[in-house]
């Protein structure tokens, strides 16, 4: 999917992050390429969510640069969609209204068109039509994730960031969600950056995986390549998978 002589869509260079004296990232660098699905893995608390938020501009890094390279210059808000770790759907609004929030914010979109678009996004993410008029608390965990994705897609973003999209879903639900992400990438040419702990997801959907450890991205490569990597953390991480895969055969 990606050849590395292409210019990256987003490049992170020399990123330092600290909260008080607590150092999260130190001289971290990472490239994200057009049209790829990039997985981000790392122990819990290694700053995966923080890295996403810095890329989104929600947290200002202590030092370092995050550059967007785009043919049309700077990316604006509507070209990035985000699915937060806990969904972050507006609890007082129905799914339909949640999806329409960015459209309303932009203004000038006719009501019936907004309804059609919301129905479209709801169908794209595989929610049943009735979900449109439900509030997030009336949905199951898996449906909330889908609703969150529908909202993230509402303005046709070019890049989507997903923070642990399959965490808390049952394996079947997780597999369906993975298929959905693959399908969206293939149909819409999305660039997808997903933080995940789910090894099955990594194997199924990602083109490359960035491994966060020791405050840096210690490797960013395809899973096949990472399996050959000798770094102790990476070996420990992929060791379980290899043995499980051999069991399956």
């Amino acid at each position: 999917m990606t050849d590395n002589n292409q210019t990256p869509l987003i490049s992170v260079r020399g990123l330092h992050t600290r909260f008080g004296s607590h150092v999260i990232h130190e001289n971290l660098s990472l490239d994200i390429y057009q049209g790829e699905i990039l997985g981000i893995v790392g122990g819990s608390g290694t700053g995966k969510s923080v890295l996403l938020k810095e890329t989104l501009g929600l947290i200002t890094p202590y030092k370092g640069e995050i550059t967007f390279h785009n043919d049309q210059g700077q990316l604006d808000k509507t070209s990035i969609g985000v699915l937060f770790q806990d969904g972050a759907l507006f609890s007082a609004l129905t799914v339909r209204q949640n999806i329409q929030v960015p459209m309303r914010e932009m203004g000038g979109v006719a009501m019936d068109l907004m309804d059609d678009l919301a129905a479209l996004k709801i169908e794209i993410v595989g929610l049943p039509p009735e979900a449109a008029h439900k509030t997030p608390s009336q949905l199951s965990g898996g449906m909330r994730k889908r609703a969150g994705l529908a909202r993230a897609l509402s303005m046709d973003p070019k890049i989507v960031f997903l923070d642990e999209p399959t965490a808390g879903l049952d394996p079947m639900g997780a597999a369906e969600f993975d298929d959905l992400i693959l399908q969206l990438r293939n149909d819409l040419g999305l660039t997808v950056v997903m933080v995940t702990h789910d090894l099955d997801s990594l194997y199924r959907v990602t083109d490359r995986v960035a491994v966060l450890a020791e405050n840096q991205v210690i490797a960013a490569d395809s899973v096949e390549e990472l399996e050959k990597n000798n770094h102790p953390w990476i070996r420990a991480y992929f060791h379980g998978v290899r043995s499980r895969q051999s069991e399956e055969r």
Partner: peptide, 9 residues
């Protein structure tokens, strides 16, 4: 993907 419309309230 445009199989259905928004169900009416």
């Amino acid at each position: 993907h445009s199989q259905y419309r928004m169900p009416p309230k």
